[in-house]
Design a protein around this nucleic acid. Sequence first.
DNA 1: TTGTATGCGTTATCAC
DNA 2: GTGATAACGCATACAA
Lengths: 343, 343
Amino acid sequence: MASLTIIDIAKICGVGVTTVSRAINNHPDISEETKAMIMKVVKENNYVPNNSARNLKRTDSKTIAVLIKGMNNPFFIKMIDLFEKGIQKKKYSFILHRVDEHQDEIDVANELVKEKKLKGIIFLGGYLSHSKEKLEQLMVPYVLCTVGLSSEFDNYNYSYVSIDDYAESYKMVDYLCKLGHKRIAIISASMRDRSIGQLRYLGYKQALEDHGIALDEQLIRPMKEHLESYSMENGYAVTKEMIDEGVEFTAIFAISDSMAIGASKALLEAGRMIPDHCSVAGFDGLDMAYYYHPSITTIKQPISEIAEEAIRILFDLIHKKTTHVQKKFPAELIERASTGTMK
Amino acid sequence: MASLTIIDIAKICGVGVTTVSRAINNHPDISEETKAMIMKVVKENNYVPNNSARNLKRTDSKTIAVLIKGMNNPFFIKMIDLFEKGIQKKKYSFILHRVDEHQDEIDVANELVKEKKLKGIIFLGGYLSHSKEKLEQLMVPYVLCTVGLSSEFDNYNYSYVSIDDYAESYKMVDYLCKLGHKRIAIISASMRDRSIGQLRYLGYKQALEDHGIALDEQLIRPMKEHLESYSMENGYAVTKEMIDEGVEFTAIFAISDSMAIGASKALLEAGRMIPDHCSVAGFDGLDMAYYYHPSITTIKQPISEIAEEAIRILFDLIHKKTTHVQKKFPAELIERASTGTMK
DNA sequence: TTGTATGCGTTATCAC
DNA sequence: GTGATAACGCATACAA
């Protein structure tokens, strides 16, 4: 059964295609009764308009796309909800599009812009490593949201919203130092990372330096590349390895809550108490950090603020109320049961 | 700047549009050199074909869509990865589409089928409560994957892959009973639930009955409707309420791992030891159940098997190698530290 | 209030 | 190996 087109419906109803189109799209210039009649036929025959044809014909379209890279990040899931609600509130429709690990998000974006006649884009996650030229290919307003950015990008002309990963990481390590810890291990990203992983590592490094603590290679532990990045499993593996090697440390700073939980598990399993034998700190402020036992000290990202601001900026860009805004939100260090003073 | 079309490229290259199309789509009937020349121009001008126009014209398309309802379920995230890999391995392309809570997944599916010329669909999550007629509207092979199904659906003609929620729930409660527990609380879904929530509840009920334990209304605790369903927060709230009310129980069976973790937190916070004072059991087999301390006893869903089988069935349907397959996988009860014998 | 005709950007058909 | 042209299904300017 070949599927129905608007022409079929028009024939069945004995009207012109325009009239059917008007009925479907709630146009004003149509009498209530013909509209009702047409809609009845549409329902009965289960007619669904072809979006490709629609998009092809359309010029505008009031839709915003959120491009997400790295869906395994539970952090993003919440954000997606916020985006959806925020965008719907503006009477725009919302498309979520997942970008593959090895895909180029700019290319994907350009494809979508043409296909869906997008009004704006929000990039969520991923590591933006594009040249200025590449970014300028995007002919539609966009906002980078918690996208890892090398500092070299700071002078580019684009908008972004995120936290200051360097400063927040510094804040956490500074806090641990002030608790009296001197041997603070970090579960970091790969040393090749040029994104948030690097920034968080640099914050760690600087804080130690400012406290007069020498960097110890043994305590710098990049996550395992063969395991899922930022996962509990990874935090567990790295910590277990440290323990097995007999490395001494009194605190672990994991650059994500998930890894902090994995680290905690490894410690507890080895019979070490948290925080009596070892303090554990995470990053992100996920629910699970709170519900873990002991509750994990973390840096809580202001998710709602970030999402709302991203939407605000995007719509300002769309309405040409602004050029570019680069905003870093302060995050909160939440002291919980997993960290304590060094005895 | 109006964006380029295939005609512009053809003009620039001094060739016909057909030739450009052939170059872009790797058609055989084109000389290597003209192809190279065209591709060069395409790159230089940053031309991106319009997918709407493509889809409109195309007849086939080798693409499979995964429709997901309820993205907050961490369980699904893993599955999506498996689907993507499996579908790519079959040389099909993969579309992930999120279905809104209040949207009808069948309607959404039909829209996508028309728009993208889908070859098949996998429904992930959600509660299928459609009439037979509605399901039959789908003119494309599809597989329901861990979609909650009322038992009344059993005779319908469709394919699905999942675990036997009733039997697995029974297994867990039976296990708790055999540990000597008599006052087993359940953190269940809403009593209006007609999906997995209901099945898991019925398993609980039957197991108690078979052990000669009377149902106690005080121990049946539907999750809070004003909180996110199946969330840690919800498990926490429900358990805290039970504790505050002074209800007596020696075990809690939460119908999701997340809620089990929330429940554990409430218990530990109240000074109750797990499992000495109270056993806790979850459902799903998420990583976090293992990494929680104490590790939580759970029913582990065979995610990979489910995903692989779903793909296998879908492609069999596409190639007409089968009619309908309804497969329930056995899940594994993993005994961990959160459950113990009743003293 | 309704219908007819055109074009959106691409691919498929067919002729060269 | 290449190019002109007709669809694909819809929305819209314009005519009625």
